[in-house]
Amino acid sequence: MSNLAALRKSYEKAELSEEASHADPLAQFAQWLGEAISAQLPEPNAMTLATVDQSQRPSTRVVLIKGYGAEGITWYTNYDSRKGRELAANPCAALQFHWVELERVVRIEGRVSKVSAAESDAYFASRPLDSRIGAWASPQSQVIASRAVLVANAAHYGARFLLQPPRPPHWGGYRLQPDRWEFWQGRKSRLHDRLRYRLDEHGNWLRERLAP
């Protein structure tokens, strides 16, 4: 068995200073995401979504960012899934990007709401046909007897909708409106750089350095 306690990594690729960072966290995020994409990292758009249910039990899963801007961070999923049910009960959530090769982490917290039906329709129509059929075929997060159920469902909805499956009523977009950001840059000797942005009482972003 591997000795996990002996695993070590020295972080020495970059630094994150107040002087070199953006005053606006969205601009800082856009820079780092752009650099992750330019570096051709595997799935730079993958982010962990954390939600909490009514009994305060947390859960996480990986989803893909599909848009961002002043209005927030957007992704799409099944509204009836576990994350959908938990967001309906508690609309506060957290996102995390981990770009291992760049030794960077971005954490984002805020409230989540559904995007408009028109926006969900437009994105759904842009998806590959098999993904659109899959949105109908999978009763996400529900117990199923076997994979054969999914295959049969896909065949059923493929025959029903042919090349024009509409967006399922249980599928669409969510948008997290950030009220807190944190940018983490790995540094040598575990003296990592952590810059947190939070909204003050006037709605302005306050940038603070946190101890690693």
Score class of each variant (00 low, 15 high):
E19Y: 01
M47K: 03
L195A: 06
N153W: 09
T77F: 06
R194S: 10
I37D: 11
G172M: 08
V106Q: 00
A88G: 02
A135K: 01
A137R: 02
A154D: 09
H22G: 01
K114H: 12
G203A: 09
Q96W: 00
A155R: 13
E119I: 10
G186A: 08
S146V: 11
I144Y: 02
P44H: 11
E18P: 00
R61T: 09
A36P: 08
W171Q: 03
A70H: 05
A70I: 12
L199E: 04
Y157L: 12
A20I: 12
L95N: 06
Q142R: 08
V106G: 00
E109I: 01
P44I: 15
L95C: 10
Q40Y: 03
A135P: 02
R85G: 11
R8Q: 13
G173V: 07
F183A: 10
D179A: 06
L26E: 12
F161W: 14
S138P: 01
A88F: 01
P42E: 14
L163R: 07
Y11W: 13
L49Q: 06
P168K: 05
A211D: 11
C92N: 10
A154T: 03
P139C: 05
L102G: 04
P139A: 13
A70E: 15
D130V: 13
R104C: 10
G172Y: 03
L210K: 11
N204L: 14
R147E: 12
